[in-house]
């Protein structure tokens, strides 16, 4: 069993700048922020290191932080410019029974993150869902398609805070 502080120290020593900070101010959960393009290496290390053995990815969730500049468009709707999207990884070691939360921030305009689907097989569908709902592009993902929405959905990513429903989809009226 290791606490988040100890794991942070190990990661900091190994990866240096790619591990940004340990965030303990959030109530209930301590979160380690890492850089989006080195997350795969960190995860390989977390999984295969003898002391850590994070063999299971419990949950991968993507968030729209909605912290950019709020722009009102001509038709009265609002949109965010700039700001970040984030991905949160809940890891767990079933052997050593400790948990860890990783978080990455990526730019809203060009959200690119390294995939971890080769580290944990279940990340495949999680990442497809994150792509489907928030629009985060996972680099090197084997099969990055939409998963819950129709494959030809063109109206954007539904879980973004500024998402707008289209009028029609294949001639069917969408708003009811």
């Amino acid at each position: 069993m290791k606490s988040s502080e100890e794991i942070f120290a190990i990661l900091k020593e190994k990866f240096g700048d790619a591990v940004l900070q340990l965030n303990t101010k959030l109530p209930k959960e301590a979160v380690i922020d890492v850089a989006p393009l080195s997350v795969t290496d960190i995860c390989w290390f977390l999984r295969d290191n003898e002391e850590l053995q994070f063999d299971s990815l419990t949950l991968l969730s993507a968030l729209d932080d909605a912290n950019g500049e709020k722009v009102t468009l001509e038709d009265g709707t609002t949109e965010f410019k700039g700001g970040t999207l984030s991905v949160v990884y809940h890891l767990e070691s079933m052997k050593l029974k400790h948990k860890l939360v990783l978080r990455i921030f990526t730019e809203r305009e060009n959200p690119e993150v390294e995939t971890v689907s080769r580290v944990w097989a279940c990340a495949d569908w999680h990442e497809r869902e994150a792509y489907d709902m928030i629009g985060i592009k996972f680099l090197n993902h084997p099969d990055l398609r939409r998963i819950l929405m129709p494959y030809d959905w063109e109206a954007g990513y539904p879980l973004r805070k500024d998402y707008k429903n289209p009028e029609f989809y294949h001639g069917m009226k969408v708003p009811y």
Partner: peptide, 9 residues
Amino acid sequence: PPEGQIYSR
């Protein structure tokens, strides 16, 4: 709830 996040299972 106060500002924060939780994963509960």
